[in-house]
Design a protein around this nucleic acid. Structure first.
Length: 481
RNA sequence: GGGCACGUGGCGAAGUGGCUAACGCAGACGCCUGCAAAGCGUCCAUUCGGCGGUUCGAAUCCGCCCGUGCCCUCCA
């Protein structure tokens, strides 16, 4: 079954065919490390992870590159304000980012290039653009891309820059005076001549036309092409990056290499909080640490971020997070049930293999349709419900049947990674577990004597300790609430 | 001001011309259970922001209105 993706470039659903038969070059615009990322950022990152996982699931060999922008206006300003070197601001933030990725079960891109380590490649690209007449150097030592020299400009965003006016126009004029030597207000910076603040924080690199530092857009072009070649298969990012960032990437890359830059452009819609945009003034910018501190689980957060289709706005709320965790709980309960179901060689053949097979087809069909994660989750829950019903009916099943059910669940979680993440959560400590087991033994003894008052007292005690118990035909199970 | 999206039950969220509008959470009732929990079953939108229009038929297409989000030069 072919995978179809919505390509922003053509504004249509297209069958995905990689340039090279199996290998897939993917690039996702990663964080600028000037502050800790927030849930909005993670929606994008988790989406990159999803795409990579699914491509692998489908048998492709994806190579995912996610950049770390560690030099730009904001990082430099941050370092200058603190009076420290650039790296002293960016490195701790990058570390924090990687730590969060682990928390969210993001497998990790294959490469996380840092902009500051790819400056020579950027200089080389700019040199080519100047040579080919697509860029020019100003008296201030800045280098701009000459949009007039590139008629194809605007093919991704379809923005007609000549119609821009009013508020936007005013800003444009202000910027033009801010950037002397710029021939056309639409031209964008490839290189910025060194300024005092840059020197102060050590953000200065040599170039044939004078020292300075790269512009933002060129960073992504250089890093993606360095890792994936002149033409990559999939380029991803937040919807806000379509213009001008990705537009500029296309222009400068294609003008420099003469090759198509990226074949499929995927853009993730924004996440809103309580239906409102996330902003500092509203005080609703949540970082991962904030959410975990409120007692929410990484698996719940990951589930919530993946539960909505990536091209639809996602409403992030704490109520929604609670619901997501309940959904994860249901999946975990089912997984545990599968793990604990007794097998019997003489059990009659069950419907489990058939249920599993149908679920996998529905699952793949959903994801093939432009990564419809909501529909894929529906397939998983359908599998859970039908399997539960079958297990209620059968009581015992054959080992092969059970194995197929477990395999199907694992296979589907390879894409979502939610169960794996939930199971990776730090377990309860040994001593606590021993105490719980002891109390359960006591309760069981009371139950055998039909002393239900005593049994219920122990259960109440456990409930107060945050333990939920389940009596099954094979004994009592317990779990943390 | 211009451009692009979106608005589905209490909440979240699929579905984009035609079976009884997925799925999850919450809620109600029932089965199971000593009682619970878990699970299962049934129920929970005659209706898809509002008003018109096209069509044999629309949540799905068109128009207007209301609301929200993104972009209009360094914001995922």
């Amino acid at each position: 079954m072919p995978l179809k993706l919505y390509n922003t470039l053509t504004r249509s659903l297209e069958e995905f065919r990689p340039l090279h038969p199996d290998r897939v070059g993917m690039y996702g615009c990663g964080p600028t490390v000037y502050q800790l990322p927030h849930v909005g950022n993670y929606r994008s990152i988790v989406f990159f992870d999803l795409v990579q996982r699914y491509l692998r699931w489908k048998g492709f060999q994806p190579k995912l590159v996610v950049n770390i922008t560690d030099v730009d206006d904001r990082t430099i300003n941050g370092a200058a304000a603190a009076g420290v070197a650039l790296g002293q601001v960016t490195e701790p933030l990058a570390d924090g980012f990687f730590q969060d990725l682990g928390t969210l079960g993001v497998r990790g891109a294959d490469v996380f290039p840092r902009a500051t380590l790819h400056i020579p490649r950027m200089v080389e690209l700019i040199r080519q653009l100047i040579e080919r007449g697509h860029a020019y150097v100003t008296d201030q030592g800045d280098v701009y891309f000459d949009i007039g020299s590139w008629p194809a400009y605007g093919k991704l965003s379809r923005v007609d820059l000549s119609t821009v006016r009013e508020g936007a126009g005013l800003e444009l004029r202000d910027r033009a005076t801010d950037e002397p030597g710029k021939r056309d207000p639409r031209d964008f910076a490839l290189w910025k001549g060194a300024k005092d603040a840059d020197r102060q924080v050590g953000a200065v690199w040599p170039a044939p036309w004078g020292e300075g530092r790269p512009g933002w857009h060129i960073e992504c072009s250089a890093m993606s092409m360095a890792e994936l070649g002149d033409t990559l298969d999939i380029h991803m990012g937040g919807e806000d990056l379509i213009f001008p960032h990705h537009e500029d990437e296309i222009a400068q890359s294609e003008a420099a290499t003469g090759q198509p830059f990226a074949r499929y452009w995927l853009h993730v819609k924004y996440l809103v909080v309580n239906g409102e945009k996330m902003s500092k003034s509203l005080g609703n910018v949540y970082r991962l640490g904030d959410i975990i501190e409120r007692g929410f689980t990484p698996a719940g957060i990951r589930y919530l971020l993946l539960a909505a289709h990536y091209r639809k706005e996602l409403n992030f709320t704490f109520d929604g997070l609670r619901d997501a965790q309940a959904a994860v709980r249901r999946l975990l309960d089912f997984q545990q049930r599968l793990a604990g179901t007794p097998v019997a060689p003489d059990a009659t053949v069950s419907a489990l293999p058939d249920i599993a097979a149908r679920a996998l087809v529905a699952f793949e069909t959903a994801l093939d349709d432009d990564l419809n994660t909501s529909a894929a989750l529906a397939a998983i829950f359908g599998f859970v419900r039908e399997s539960n019903a079958e297990l209620d009916r059968a009581r015992t099943v054959t080992e092969p049947d059970l194995r197929q059910a477990r395999a199907a669940l694992d296979r589907m979680d390879e894409v979502f990674g939610v169960l794996a993440l939930a199971n990776a959560a730090p377990g309860v400590d040994e001593q606590f577990a021993r105490w719980v087991e002891q109390r359960l033994t006591d309760r069981q003894a009371a139950r055998l004597h039909r002393d239900f008052a005593a049994a219920d007292a122990i259960r109440a005690e456990l409930t107060a300790a945050g333990v939920v118990i389940e009596d099954t035909a094979r004994g009592t199970r317990w779990k943390k609430a």
